[in-house]
Design a protein around this nucleic acid. Structure first.
Lengths: 196, 196
DNA sequence: CCAGATATATGACTGAAATCATATGGAAGC
DNA sequence: GCTTCCATATGATTTCAGTCATATATCTGG
């Protein structure tokens, strides 16, 4: 199912797509007709410098939407390439704009979605600006980001899994985290101070 | 002047505020009545763990808006504290919501603002996920982020100014950038390959 | 049940950015 | 014009995350 409020769009506005590894979803020069929900896989948004160097704008993963700004723009600002086999839903821009005009609740919910996303991204950006691995991991766990595996957390917060495991061990020794199981850590409720 | 579309709000929706260093703008427990435009200064949004550790959610600087998500929420999710003397404009949440309902152009422009902001943040997040200083700086310059001083760029992209100057020198030696003046660098138009 | 794959965990070593230090060029204020 | 302050720039040292290696635990599929 699509995330709110896209789940209320008529089926005529939606078009499923499948991409193989390396396939191009759209190019910078294409007129932007769709925004996308990525069911599964990995799509990369890229720009290129005049000298031909690729600049990665965004990495979209399963469950995420992307190219939202194309709603309000007459150009895509980047190319979109599937880095893995990917399943998507293309959502028609014109029909979304029409729905926004006709259905103020939809427009409202879309704004809410954008605002919430902005907030989450600001938090994540602040997380990435923490240089120290232990501090970054502590903040990530405080943000409730350790839901799956430690490995996936590590990838999510821009650290190697080795650095992550080490920092988790250190934070546990320091009493800032408690290890509740293999690969499971929680915030310590009461700050304890131990060297280590 | 306020950024689009807040500049179209009636004056009754706006309330200027000044905060001294360390003053609290709002607390997590406060009902969210305003979103804010920060004219100048530095406001930090923070949460606290049960053990009392502060988690920085966002650093707002001059020219930015923050607490947008409060429009759609019944709670602030963090405390807001001025880290420097700051001038703000508090924008009334109720009146903004009312304007959104009554003026679809305003609602549309607000969505557009949010979507653009999301896009910019995703780009910046991708920038921060580049570990190598030279590569990060190259991407930042390709994104047109070197408008002011090198020092402010360095702070903006999460590197020390020393690392930034060194990387700029290296990229220039490699022919990927051209130095157009003291503290001024641009992308080289044609990729040249030199060791260094 | 067994084999292979993946996640967890940690040790050793390396490399790159942070830190600390120093020097110079410009801009701003007196 | 002179002083002060900040940005630019680079050298020396340290620190810490990355990389490479190894071992074990758990999960998955045949």
């Amino acid at each position: 199912m699509l995330p709110v409020p896209f789940n209320t769009l008529p089926n005529t506005a939606l078009k499923p797509r499948k991409l193989g590894k390396g396939e191009i979803l759209f190019r910078q020069s294409d007129p932007p007709s769709f925004l996308y929900f990525l069911r599964s896989g990995h799509v990369q948004l890229r720009r290129h410098t005049e000298a031909g160097e690729a600049i990665i704008i965004h990495n979209a993963h399963g469950g995420q939407t992307f190219a939202e700004a194309s709603l309000f723009s007459s150009n895509y600002h980047c190319d979109a390439i599937a880095c893995e086999p990917s399943e998507l839903v293309a959502m028609n821009k014109i029909q979304i704009l029409k729905t926004m005009r006709q259905n103020s609740l939809f427009a409202f919910a879309l704004s809410a979605r954008f605002a919430t996303e902005m907030q989450a991204q600001r938090r994540k950006l602040e997380l990435f600006s923490i240089k120290s691995a232990p501090q970054r991991i502590f903040a990530a766990i405080a943000d409730g980001m350790l839901t799956g595996s430690v490995t996936s957390l590590a990838a999510d917060i821009g650290l190697t899994h080795e650095a992550t495991y080490r920092a988790l061990a250190q934070l546990t020794r320091q009493g800032k985290l408690v290890k509740t199981g293999r690969g499971r850590y929680e915030l310590a409720k009461i700050e304890s101070r131990t060297t280590g």
